Simulated assay, not measured.
Amino acid sequence: MTDRLPHALRSDALDNRERVLDAARALFATEGLNVPMREIARHAGVGPATLYRRFPTKQTLVTEVFQDQMRACHTIVDEGLADPDPWRGFRRVVERTCELHAHNRGFTEAFMSAFPDAVDFAADRAYAMNAIAELARRAKDAGRLRPDFVLDDLILMLMAHRGIHVPSAAARVTASRRFAALVIQAFQVSATHEPLPPVPRLAPAYP
């Protein structure tokens, strides 16, 4: 029995860690990063002491929770750069970035954070922004992206996108896709526009 005890303890510790991560993912996605650590512990079914033993600070927890999203963000910009058509690559970056952020409100806050005590993805953010800057340069050279576009416009886009609050995940994704289409039309040089994606119902029907 004593030989099996350490293994059982390790198994329980691993289960607790995964429950905390699952709870944090769910709460950060719907409520953002301001969720109290005690609420995450309650949602995970563990005590606060157990949570802090696994994740001493919220920063360590958030960094762990959003590793997959940061990898997805890298993939998005890398695939955009690899597209032989820079404007198509740029469009896909905008569309897929909006969709990625639509699925997780907390990731938007973590990615955008620049406050000293907040979660800092500085290296990942710098990588993504440098890659997008190169892609934007190519799209401008191809005559498709308006010449006065600057990276601050992309930050402005993410800030505005963060304001999408709708009752369901499906409606949030639908709204995000339409928002991305409007942004792309604003960024492009051509005056011709493709049809917009469907509009979600965001308010009561008009009389």
Rank of each mutant, 00 (worst) to 15 (best):
D3Q: 13
D3R: 15
L5G: 08
S11G: 05
A13L: 15
A13H: 14
L14W: 10
R17C: 06
E18M: 09
L21Q: 12
D22Q: 11
R25I: 08
R25A: 10
R25W: 10
L27A: 14
A29C: 02
L33P: 07
N34H: 02
V35R: 07
R38E: 07
R42G: 12
H43Q: 10
A44E: 04
G47E: 10
G47C: 02
P48A: 01
P56N: 04
T60V: 13
L61S: 03
E64V: 09
F66H: 12
F66I: 02
Q67R: 15
Q67I: 15
Q67W: 14
Q69C: 11
M70K: 15
R71V: 12
R71G: 11
C73I: 07
V77M: 06
E79V: 08
L81V: 14
A82I: 06
D83S: 12
R88D: 04
R88Y: 05
G89C: 12
F90Y: 14
F90N: 10
R91G: 14
R92F: 06
R92D: 07
V94C: 15
E95C: 12
T97A: 13
N104C: 04
R105L: 03
R105H: 07
G106A: 00
F107C: 00
T108E: 02
E109L: 08
A110F: 08
F111A: 07
F111V: 06
S113F: 05
S113Y: 03
A114W: 11
V119W: 03
V119C: 05
R125K: 08
R125L: 00
A126L: 01
A128P: 01
A131G: 01
I132E: 00
I132C: 00
E134A: 01
L135A: 01
R137A: 09
R137V: 04
R137L: 05
R138Y: 01
A139T: 10
K140F: 05
K140I: 09
D141M: 06
A142I: 02
A142T: 02
R146W: 12
P147C: 01
V150T: 12
D152P: 03
D153Y: 12
L156G: 14
L156C: 13
L158S: 03
L158H: 09
M159I: 08
A160Q: 14
H161N: 06
H161A: 05
R162G: 01
G163A: 13
G163C: 14
V166Q: 04
S168K: 12
A169S: 14
A169G: 14
A170N: 12
A171H: 11
V173I: 15
T174G: 07
T174E: 14
A175W: 10
R177M: 09
R178H: 06
F179L: 04
F179D: 07
A180W: 11
A181G: 03
V183K: 11
Q185G: 04
A186F: 04
F187C: 12
Q188H: 08
Q188K: 13
Q188R: 13
Q188W: 07
V189Y: 02
A191I: 11
E194C: 04
P195H: 05
L196Q: 05
P198G: 01
V199S: 13
L202S: 10
A203H: 08
Y206D: 02
